[in-house]
Every structure is written in structure tokens, then in C-alpha cells.
Amino acid sequence: MQKFVTVVGGINVDLTGSPHQPLVLATSNPGETSLSVGGVGRNIAHNLALLGVPTTLLSAVGDDAFGVYALDITRQAGVNIEYVLKQAGQRTGTYLSVLNFEHDLVVAIADMAATRGVSASYLAQHERILTESALIAADANLEEETLTYLCNLCETRRIPLLIEPVSVEKSKKLHRMNAKATYLTPNRDELHAMTGRDDADLAAQCACLRDQFDHIFVTLGEQGVYYCQSYPAIPTTVVNANGAGDALVAGLICGLFHEKPLSDSIRLGIAAAHIALQSPETVNPELSFSRIQGM
């Protein structure tokens, strides 16, 4: 039986605006807008497929044009979307973001109500897919009940589970519910929110969560990744920062899937993020395993 990764998380359509000059708040700014498919879980799955990792996505969309568009793009990337839930009367999630002149995120609004369809009962219906997975990745857009079900299943069946916290508020949920998983990929702010410590000692902060997560990879933006030591980022001319973190997680999972050492897997993640940053799209279609191996 072919090994594969299952990703559990959100699908949405990304609407992004970037100004032609330094951003001025509370008024209209000349600039450009773009439309692409997003969602943390979906982005990770899309990146994994581009990296040649067989990937199944468990997620939910509405019965609208955005849902059709999102699934078409994801299918074309090579992701197995057979089990994605299509919800009648529901709108597909949208993520509206505004970037500044340096192409960094200023503010975003996430309408992720459709993701509630990814419930514990929905996952129970697809337990066979989950238990046959070589690794499961989940984003913290999921409800607590869903995450609890997933954590318990993976612990019982000894399936490696990676959780991407997504945001500061959602990372607090993981700490509150005492979620347990093999891997966690917080950024610095999410790590602070989970530990209650606002200091520079990343090793000490990670140690606070060691009873919940076996391996904690702290993503540090242009400073790279921290895991027991610092792994520097690759200098990059940034076109669009959206989706770089999702690409990093996918590169990391790609290394784990191929049973590479953790240090090599981290470097694959950093290389994937480097490629993602160079594209105006949330997922860079030029991403490939051969490209990240050569960096």
C-alpha cells in the first residue's frame, strides 16, 4: 500500500490587496488585488502535492462558486479531494488580507465558518483514511472537539501528528485543551501565547510544552527556524509573504515523510518558504522537491 499524508484543516479563497506606495490607513489606497485559493490546511496539502508527496485532504467547503473554484485548483495540484465535505447552504471560507508597501501583512479578516463542518463525527466517518496515513497534519482552525478526537486517535494508533497553530488566539486553544501531538510549528508570538512567557529564551519556552509536544519547530520569519539550535533563513526578495509559513510546514513534512533527519527536514522547509516568498500567489506553482533539495 502506498504511503500518504493526510491534511485536516481549512479551505478558503484568499483575497489580497497590496498598495503601490506606503499604506495610509482609513482611506482608499491605489494598488493591486488578487484572488487565489488558500486555507492553511489546503495550502499545506497543495504544497505537499507539488513536492511529490501523496496527499489526501479532509476539509469542508460551501456549495458556491468559490467552493468549486477552490476544489478545482486543489485537484489540479494533485491533492486527493475525494473526501472533502460539500455543505449545502454554506459559503466557502474567505480570507481577506491587506499587505503594506513591503508586502508584509497589515491586517486580515478570516471568514472560516465552513471549517466547522470538519467535525469529530466527520473525521470518524473517514477513520480508515486517517489510520492508514503515514503522518497527519492539522491546522488549529479546527474546533476543540475535532482536535481532541484527532489527538486521541493519533496517540492510540501511534500515528505521527503535526499541528500548525495558525494564530495567537488559536494557539491558546491548544494549550487550554492540553493537546498532545508529535510536532508543533508555532511562530514566536504563538509560542509566547502558549507558554505565557515573553522572553527571548526559546529553549526554555519549548521546554514548558514538552509534555504536550515531542518536537517544537519555532518559525522566526526572516531569522529562520529554531529547533534546539538556529537554522537561518535563505535571503529572499519578498513578493508576497502570505503562504510562506504553510510552505515551510509542507517542506518539513516532506522531509519527515521521506524519513530524513530532522535537521535536513527543517532545511527543506526553509527552502520551500524561500520559494513561496517569491511568488504573488499563496502557493508558488514552481515549487518542487528537486528545487528544495538543491538549496
Rank of each mutant, 00 (worst) to 15 (best):
Q229M: 11
T219C: 06
Q293G: 13
V168G: 01
D211G: 08
N43Y: 06
S133I: 01
R116N: 15
R267D: 10
G93K: 02
D199R: 00
G224D: 06
G38Q: 00
V24F: 11
I136H: 06
N29F: 03
V218N: 01
V166M: 04
D189R: 09
C208N: 13
H126L: 11
I275A: 10
A77E: 05
N152Y: 12
Q278L: 07
T146Y: 10
S230C: 13
G17W: 04
D214Y: 09
V249Q: 07
N284D: 01
C228H: 15
S288Y: 02
A250K: 00
L209T: 03
L262Q: 12
A241H: 11
P186I: 04
E82W: 10
M112V: 00
L96G: 00
S119P: 05
E169S: 10
K260D: 11
K180A: 12
L105S: 03
V107Q: 05
Q90L: 14
T27W: 10
N187G: 02
D198S: 09
A77W: 07
Q21R: 14
G89M: 05
P235D: 10
A193G: 02
D199T: 01
V249P: 05
K170F: 00
G38S: 01
I163Y: 07
F289C: 13
A26P: 00
P165A: 04
G221M: 06
T94P: 03
T182R: 09
T27V: 10
N29Y: 00
L162P: 02
A244I: 01
T219K: 09
A204L: 03
L248H: 10
T131S: 12
D189L: 11
G117W: 09
V84N: 02
A137T: 07
K3S: 15
Y69R: 13
L25I: 14
C154G: 03
S230P: 14
A200F: 12
A233L: 03
M194Q: 04
T115Y: 11
S59Q: 04
L15K: 08
S279A: 08
F289K: 14
E281H: 15
P160L: 01
T131H: 12
C206P: 03
E143P: 08
Q293R: 15
A45Q: 00
A241L: 11
L287V: 08
T185F: 03
A204M: 05
L96F: 10
D14R: 05
Q278N: 07
A179E: 01
G52N: 09
K170R: 04
I266E: 11
Q293I: 13
Q205I: 06
V8D: 01
T185W: 00
E32Q: 14
